[in-house]
Design a protein around this nucleic acid. Sequence first.
DNA 1: ATGTCTTTGTGAACGCGTGCACAAAGATTG
DNA 2: CAATCTTTGTGCACGCGTTCACAAAGACAT
Lengths: 278, 278
Amino acid sequence: MATGRTHRPATRSRGIPEATVARLPLYLRALTALSERSVPTVSSEELATAAGVNSAKLRKDFSYLGSYGTRGVGYDVEYLVYQISRELGLTQDWPVVIVGIGNLGAALANYGGFASRGFRVAALIDADPAMAGKPVAGMPVQHTDELEKIITDNGVSIGVIATPAGAAQQVCERLVAAGVTSILNFAPTVLTVPDGVDVRKVDLSIELQILAFHEQRKAGEGAAAEAASAAERGSAVGAAEVDAADADADADVDAPEADSAAANRKGPDGDVPAVMPA
Amino acid sequence: MATGRTHRPATRSRGIPEATVARLPLYLRALTALSERSVPTVSSEELATAAGVNSAKLRKDFSYLGSYGTRGVGYDVEYLVYQISRELGLTQDWPVVIVGIGNLGAALANYGGFASRGFRVAALIDADPAMAGKPVAGMPVQHTDELEKIITDNGVSIGVIATPAGAAQQVCERLVAAGVTSILNFAPTVLTVPDGVDVRKVDLSIELQILAFHEQRKAGEGAAAEAASAAERGSAVGAAEVDAADADADADVDAPEADSAAANRKGPDGDVPAVMPA
DNA sequence: ATGTCTTTGTGAACGCGTGCACAAAGATTG
DNA sequence: CAATCTTTGTGCACGCGTTCACAAAGACAT
């Protein structure tokens, strides 16, 4: 997410809610699969299942695009593929540059899914002079010095940042200055960009942390009901949890000493007891 | 959101809203940086800026954790780092397995950010016999046959799927059957999992498509008012120029959108972004 | 044509998340 | 100790997004 600005009337880009836009690619993928199997039509129910969403939601999403379905029958697969593609702007060519050709950048460059939908890798850019000219994914890596020229010459408006965190903001600024208005950021940093520039971030570490949170919750909660089975699974919860009923189960076991922080605070909180994984 | 499956009805895992949980890692990162600079305290305003969010939101988020701030002063950095880490479950060790050691899988294995927060790569698994034993990121790749044993022996509860789309569901099922309850999916497929299992997905293709949508909108908009180059992306969106009759729905050539800037990520849960290939 | 059956499209209710604005709490100064 | 200043914590209102539930629309059979 971008930092510079943060608010906006929740932008309904054109009457199409942001949440819906985020789901369109999902529908498109499911539809494409159906199309390849030559399925002529699908009901909202079937398509919703394939896309992993609720059918009512899907119908409402489609209603923002227009009335493309036929009552009693469903949606014409081919037609819908076309409409969604057009709506997403996939009927045109989108040259993309990837900056930072390390492990991740190289993996992205090799990713086939790129080209499959109108996205074309126009160039791979890296700051390391040693990388210059070296072929990655059948394409020579170019030095950062060329960045502006590349962007301009190829009319690139979408940039992918896969550099180390420390270089991200600077690269971002150069990209924006050169004309890029959409950025996909893989570096673990908050990018600050001017208005009008879209930033989406992909952060591995954050995703894992969110999973860990839920995992921890699950471990603490199942502990009570967990008599003996699966004792080897790293979830030997402390006996402190008398009743971890789902209600609000807020078994407060005080937190261990303020650790490195000698603060004298006392959180009204403190929860999960010691869990010890392998 | 993260999965194609519906976990609990937006259950507040423990009184902590999902949206807040998704931001905690962001705060943690900003706090860690401050900690390394030996900054003792921060105000909600400073921290919010560093994390790229609104200060009111940050304060509200923290209020779900408890009252850890001091009015008139701010928050104790070290203490907050500890509290958030504990809340996220990062004070414990989380063994993780990565299945599918292709370009992406290898990149993930080499990703340093993994270990930095309690996540330890316990094993790299691939179905290709030729890969077996081959060292990646200083660790021998193991064959899929060993999957169940690895999960059990290491008490792994978090799995990362970086296989091709076609193999994802099957791998997912084996992981779950073996005891994994949280999955980070990089394969472009909707995974179906039983209740109690969390799935978060990272899909590069989807992220790019969302950017393309906004990019297209921006282009169309600029075309209409091309006069002023690319400098008027005001935030004072005049609702005035809303698209023509909303009922158009047809105009194949597509009408330029109205509205302005674009929303960065959002998403109830997730909003969160997630992305990637396979 | 008429009736029945299927599936869409959507009005309305509801819940979550966001942001404002301010009272309360504590630090700080005189 | 009182006054002032700073910053937190939160009540409240608002809007987006989700879901339900159903009328409308069309296909299909008789």
